[in-house]
Nucleic acid binder design. Structure first.
Lengths: 215, 215
DNA sequence: CGAGATCTTGATCTGACTCAAGAGTCGTGG
DNA sequence: CCACGACTCTTGAGTCAGATCAAGATCTCG
């Protein structure tokens, strides 16, 4: 297992870009802030009073054990909204993977935000519960297949797509070591199921085989 | 791994009891229905237009793989509300564990249910994401310890509490086999951390040791 | 071009799974 | 009340998928 010391690199988001209104969201919308590679967006224990929408880039949301073991509970891509919490403090860490533009959605006091965000929160709940099945009951190949299909799907279903995150991130999302992730990638490539044009992108050749793998 | 063939036993909930209003819930409240041991409350793919509140008993919510592998995503105890879904169909199965009284909360058409249930949905989201850490990064002893602490906490923190579910259910919740669950229970007993007055209840003797185990 | 990350691959180890058998528990009916 | 049968749970022995440990290879970017 890779150990991840708590990231000390503070966010210092450089202001940027123009504000786009979010459909159905009632609060004031902030302009996009740029988070550099690896910078923290929020930390466990911090006050949670906003939601975040990604303009470009990718975010990892995770939790740590005392000894540094890490579990990434979700990756969020361009357009997605994250930062839902129960109570008013964050239960997780969120960090930018690569340079990422994030827009903060801060509901005004007494604002009725729930109607707009409930479907998003519920979608997150269903996704997390579906990921439990992957972590609890699927083997390494099935986990990687499910991950690739999910990433492809969320990037529009194109045969070739980006993997903005490292093997270490993928391992910590799938509950595997980086070595096991790497071995499964190699095996899938060797069987002609995927191609790896470079380290950070994947081309799916045999969709059905991949789907069968993830069951 | 234990294989669970799809439960064919249909729900046939016998009507019962009196209606108690749920604070903050705007829709009409149904009287309690009794679900016998093992009966289905809803199935994956069914129309999802209600929430459910438990009067007494316990419910398991789970998903199945094609070959019968099962992952229980949550147990719900007396007083708790479950059945949150994204879209209008169920993504999971829900079954009564033992005889269980469930009250159906059916929001009227166009009803503003979100304000009342958002905090509950978010709590479910946080719990599911925290459980991801258990399944992805903790070993068998840590998983069982976390489970026992959670069950104790949700039953009021008493030193002695019920385990309404079987070892098989616990295994399918923690991503372990029943044999491994049983071995960890035996080991905890042998070390004097817990006592097992009978198969379906636990007494925690050394809380701090258990907490240290779950990290 | 070079240094540090990141990734891949190989060899070995181990925690949890599988298979198997026995013990305990519960409900039913004689 | 006890005997029987069917579960459920526990325990043991052996196996295996994925972790760990250890080199190398490749990529990135100043």
């Amino acid at each position: 297992m890779t150990i991840h010391p708590r990231n000390e690199f503070s966010s210092m988001a450089a202001g940027a870009a123009l504000a786009l209104p979010i459909p159905g969201f009632p609060g004031p919308v902030q302009p996009t802030s740029l988070y550099p590679t690896g910078s923290e967006i929020y930390a466990q224990g911090e006050l949670a009073d906003s939601l975040y929408q990604i303009d470009f880039g990718c975010v990892r949301v995770y939790r740590l054990l005392a000894d540094g073991r890490r579990q990434i509970s979700a990756f969020h891509l361009s357009g997605e909204i994250f930062g839902f919490e129960s109570g008013n403090t964050h239960h997780f860490f969120a960090e930018a993977i690569g340079a990422t533009g994030v827009r903060v959605l801060r509901p005004g006091p007494g604002m009725e935000i729930s109607q707009a965000i409930l479907p998003l929160a519920l979608q997150g709940l269903v996704r997390a519960q579906e990921h439990l099945l992957v972590l609890g009951r699927q083997n390494a190949a099935e986990r990687v297949a499910a991950f690739l299909l999910d990433m492809a799907d969320r990037q529009g279903g194109l045969e070739c797509f980006d993997l903005p995150m490292s093997r270490s991130d993928i391992g910590d999302y799938l509950g595997l070591t980086i070595e096991t992730v790497s071995r499964v990638f190699s095996k899938l490539k060797e069987k002609g199921i995927i191609r790896l044009p470079n380290l950070r992108s994947v081309e799916v050749v045999k969709w059905q085989t991949l789907r069968n793998l993830s069951e």
